[in-house]
Design a binder for these strands. Structure first.
Lengths: 135, 135
DNA sequence: TGAATATTTACAAAAAATTGGTATTATTAT
DNA sequence: ATAATAATACCAATTTTTTGTAAATATTCA
């Protein structure tokens, strides 16, 4: 199990036990909503409050330690920052999967068409995962 | 100016004056947040309530008359349903632009890599629009 | 290692966002 | 036009998120 103390400090965040646990939860589950995170955190810190969750999620976002993933029709989930990647969501079971796809073609197409200077791409595929297709 | 009475009815929505005005606002502005929509609606219906806005947005979403667009770091905006397209957001001025790009390559890549059956793609480019690059 | 300081936490409360209940009014189909 | 149905405004309730603060904790630096 990873120790995120240094990673947190590199993002100018104090390494508190609560934050370490948030990092562990994100690492373990990959993507997690505020509600789920609160439930998980309660198991380790039985007096933790939602306000603490929100404050930490928000400051972690500001400092780019984590990223928000906006899923269609769902509440946002959060993930540890890593290399750029896209997401797939199963409309049946809700599973979220990471995927790395080369987006230079679409990025260039968008840039030349609109003259935007593009520096970030949020891409979410929705559909059915392999398991849910066969059920 | 378009009359959306029939379009609403085709989506099994009664064509009330409030709904027609929402449709007009979405058509005129392209993308609108709940707050902005409420402000706009207040000009025509000085006793309209936010609850009415929410109820209509929700039922219009359910009936696919409109679509939600989730913008990074921003509140959702809504748009009239139309052909599939992607979005560009300017991080400076907030402008949201539609763009049609062929996504069959990335869609195929994602499908073959993950064995998902993909039926929807949400793609948002963030960056700077042409105007804001030169400021 | 320990004291000083700066930040974080839990808790309470407030604020903001969204949803629910109902009498009245408007829309639709006949 | 009328009856049946659904939407609206209004108000209240709920849910979600943020804020303020004293106490507790982590970090810094000697």
């Amino acid at each position: 199990m990873n120790n995120y103390s240094n990673a947190l400090r590199e993002h100018h965040l104090k390494a508190t036990p609560q934050r370490l646990e948030i990092a562990n939860a994100l690492a373990y589950y990959g993507h997690i909503s505020i509600d789920n995170l609160y439930e998980i955190m309660l198991k380790k810190f039985n007096s933790i409050s939602l306000a603490t969750i929100y404050k930490n999620i928000n400051i972690m976002l500001e400092n780019s330690f984590i990223q928000e993933v906006k899923i269609p029709h769902e509440k946002s989930v959060y993930e540890l920052s890593k290399e750029a990647h896209s997401h797939l969501v199963c409309n049946e079971c809700g599973e979220i999967e990471d995927i790395s796809i080369d987006l230079s073609q679409v990025s260039n197409a968008a840039a030349t068409n609109t003259h935007f200077k593009i520096d970030k791409i949020d891409l979410v595929f929705s559909g059915l995962c392999q398991k849910c297709q066969t059920l």
